[in-house]
């Protein structure tokens, strides 16, 4: 359980840092063309890295959430079908 929350927090922090470091003023130190990375200007590669790592971070989050869901099937089963019948009240 705690692990799940930790991963959620880490994901949130990653994307907040992502926003901070691709806009002003966080991006300023990375805003130079050299050295070229795989032929691309340094600043463009830095943004590409944030995006690529973003996919990795989301993947880790997804694994963690899936394991969490699989880990408490009893709770899920109770929540879903019959027992909790407050449903149905149309807005």
């Amino acid at each position: 359980m705690n692990r799940v929350k930790l991963v959620r927090a880490a994901t949130t922090i990653y994307f907040v840092l992502f926003l901070v470091f691709v806009t002003w003023p966080g991006f300023v130190p990375f805003n130079r063309p050299l050295p070229l990375v795989l032929g691309l200007p340094f600043n463009m590669a830095a943004i590409g890295l944030w995006v690529g790592l973003g996919a990795v971070v989301l993947f880790v989050l997804d694994r963690s959430e899936e394991r969490n869901r699989a880990g408490r099937p009893a709770e899920d089963a109770r929540g879903r079908p019959g027992r909790d019948s407050r449903a149905g009240g149309a807005g």
């Binding site: 992502f18 926003l19 691709v22 463009m44 943004i47 944030w50 995006v51 973003g54 996919a55």
Partner: peptide
Amino acid sequence: YILSYGAL
């Protein structure tokens, strides 16, 4: 900027 916003 176009590269930056999508993932966010």
